[in-house]
């Protein structure tokens, strides 16, 4: 529906999809105690935490060991009035980029994330 991260502020396309959702397999959701529509934060292997929470969609369309989200959301620019803070950005979690020594192609799928069920910023303030 959207083209990369560029169209998320377009009124018509924002109407179609205004945020991305994190696809989680029902079995994984059961283990974590996550419900459909619940907001979670994501943390990757380098302790990078997503700036915004993302809603979970519990679905059979995703495998047990992976989660999926549409690319292009979680904008931090406030002037993007419609898309600011909607959904989470996958690119900020991609901190580990592998490069193919022969071709120079990049592999970004070597990143691992975990769920944070509470607001990480709040927890920091409290502690």
């Amino acid at each position: 529906m959207h083209t990369f991260s560029r169209t998320t502020n377009n009124p018509n396309l924002d109407d179609l999809m205004d945020e991305n959702k994190l696809w989680v397999n029902p079995r994984v959701a059961e283990i974590w105690g996550i419900e459909n529509g619940q907001k979670v934060w994501l943390k990757n292997q380098d302790d990078v935490v997503s700036s915004f929470p993302i809603k979970v969609r519990v679905t059979e369309r995703i495998r047990w060991d992976s989660v999926y989200m549409v690319h292009g959301f979680g904008h931090k620019e406030k002037r993007l009035s419609r898309s600011y803070g909607k959904g989470a950005s996958d690119s900020e979690l991609v901190t580990h980029v592998m490069t193919d020594p022969v071709m120079g192609g990049t592999g970004m799928r070597g990143n691992f994330v975990t769920f944070l069920l509470g607001n990480p910023k709040k927890e920091e303030v409290e502690s």
Binding site: M1, L16, M17, P26, V58, T59, E60
Partner: peptide, 8 residues
């Protein structure tokens, strides 16, 4: 699991 939702 069965789900049916609006995707537009």
């Amino acid at each position: 699991m069965k789900e049916e939702l609006f995707v537009s």
